[in-house]
Design a protein around this nucleic acid. Structure first.
Lengths: 234, 234
DNA sequence: AATCTTAGCGTATTTTTTACGCTAAGTTTG
DNA sequence: CAAACTTAGCGTAAAAAATACGCTAAGATT
């Protein structure tokens, strides 16, 4: 694969577990003689290949990492500050691992949403709560911050929550995801009332199990019905 | 100025006049022996310079062309299809005019909004209604289409309309801009009622002139007040 | 059996949106 | 110069949506 050393893609992969939004980070390999402290974590990403479309690059990065396809993916910004490849030691790491003469890289940023349970991710990979991230390589902290802002904006108008939830979910799970990501609180009675009016959220005959309180009914998202009239949840 | 032949910026400049949204296009220079038909119009844009940030590139392109600064500008997408520099004759034109070995260019797309009246644009430049554009160079038709979609989405939540209107404007002008860009119709009585509740739209003591009907009161947009609570118009 | 937690339905009130009637202030027409 | 025409500009009534909050039910825990 013929890499293009001027352009890369980076993916901010969001997942939801334990009531908080998380981001998938990769430990960049430590090398001999390098100090362990600082600058070890990065976003998944890579230089694009010469013949490849940008979206394809991002999808490739994602499937290589997670083993999943059909992941929700959205290009949301580009970062091209000539000075973004700092600190120097990280730039040198990039040069070594890519084997290319890298000077300036404009990176196309994507965010994606996955169900953590689905992913077969293990190696040198960390799900980290999106709040109080540690210091990442390059401008990756900035890239995550912008991703989150974009996610929040889209979250209100598009049915993104279902990308993070299992196929069958309770209304409580749904509400939690909204409250946590948009940083709001909702009255559950009014929330449920709204849900009941949406014909694309269909109740199943099943109930949740292994909870230490009254088990709630499970629902599923009917994407087909949603697309008929794209009525937002909130 | 040291150009980077792998990355460019393109600007979709919107303006509003005669009740329709327009886009600023440039005639790409015809060269000897070239046929006049087809592929003559393009978006303003250029390869970025090596030391320049992307936004700075876009701003430079814009001020060089329009003589204006402080223009509203928004990066909305990136286009990087390996095959986007078609047809061949246009690619060759780019090679000649840039004087560089150009193969693949990833372009960062911006849209911007200006008051047509302000601009000192003349040379080889056309304001063309955004509907039924002629065939443009490369993938520029696609770039405009996406810009329009982004504009429409932002238009509902941000006070973009005032970038297109003169400093003093009537409510009719305001309504027209919404109706035309969002492709909707509004009841003017209800529209005005809503406006009256917004404290950031302040009536002046002036009235419009030289109209062949009852002259309307002029209003101005108070950005400072708007920013206190970002209440949308619609 | 009493208590605790979350599920789940309902009603009353307020706020926002929608539909539409009407007068006023100018210009144009006969 | 009066009648007709166009757009400005204010208002009221009904419908719909958002908000606040009361209450019972089902299961787990003490």
């Amino acid at each position: 694969m013929n890499l293009n050393p001027h352009i890369s893609v980076d993916c901010v992969i969001f997942g939801f577990s334990e009531g908080t939004l998380k981001v998938l980070l990769i430990e960049r390999e430590k090398e001999k003689g390098e100090q362990l402290g600082g600058h070890k974590l990065k976003l998944p990403g890579s230089l694009i290949s010469e013949q490849e479309d940008l979206d394809t690059s991002a999808i490739r990065t994602l499937t290589e990492l997670t083993g999943l396809n059909n992941i929700f993916l959205k290009q949301y910004s580009v970062f091209g500050d000539p000075g973004r490849l700092k600190p120097q030691e990280d730039l040198e790491w990039l040069r070594r691992t890519s084997g290319m003469k890298v000077d300036r890289v404009v990176t196309v940023a994507y965010y994606s949403l996955i169900k953590i349970s689905d992913s077969a991710i293990t190696d040198r990979t960390i799900w980290h709560p999106v709040n109080n991230l540690p210091e990442l390589i390059f401008d990756h902290n900035h890239i995550v911050k912008e991703a989150l802002q974009n996610l929040r904006n889209e979250f209100r108008i598009k049915p993104l929550c279902f990308e993070l939830l299992p196929k069958k979910f309770t209304l409580r799970q749904l509400q939690d995801i909204f409250e946590s990501i948009l940083n709001i609180t909702l009255d559950s009675r009014n929330f449920r009332k709204k849900i009941r009016k949406l014909d694309y959220l269909t109740p199943l005959s099943e109930k949740e199990k292994n909870v230490n309180h009254k088990p709630a009914k499970l629902y599923k998202f009917d994407r087909h019905r949603y697309e008929k009239k794209e009525q937002p949840l909130l």
